[in-house]
Amino acid sequence: MIIQQISVFLENRAGQLLEVTDILAEHHIDMQAINIAETADYGIARLIVDNPRKAAEALSERGYVLRATPVVQAPVPDRPGGLSELLRAVAAADIDIEYMYSAFMGQRNGLAYMIFRVEDSSRLDGVLAKLS
């Protein structure tokens, strides 16, 4: 499934991330996945939330620089080798993964969820849809 990810620019200083999560809490936005990429001076917080539009508005209002990007959310069988199966299909389709991370949206029916950032989200979505 293709969903919107919100990326936020964060300076590396104490309390920066807390400010972001507080803003989301104030607006009753539920976080489903978070990933942080960082350098010595700054970081990028990538967020998956239940209401990306509302989150983007709330954060922009408070002066944050952010960007919405389509990513692919995919269920992964929660057992040894589960992720390998999925990655094998991605590799077979010759798709480069820019980055990926795990989500903590309810692990029902023995499934875990991964978030994939690739150049062509619809193509990856198609490949993964065939798997399940």
Binding site: S7, T39, I44, V65, L66, R67, Y99, R117
Partner: peptide, 15 residues
């Protein structure tokens, strides 16, 4: 200061 136009979700692009 970071600007919306220069910001990206990719660390590689920013660096």
């Amino acid at each position: 200061e970071m600007t919306p136009d220069n910001f990206s979700d990719s660390l590689g692009r920013i660096t």
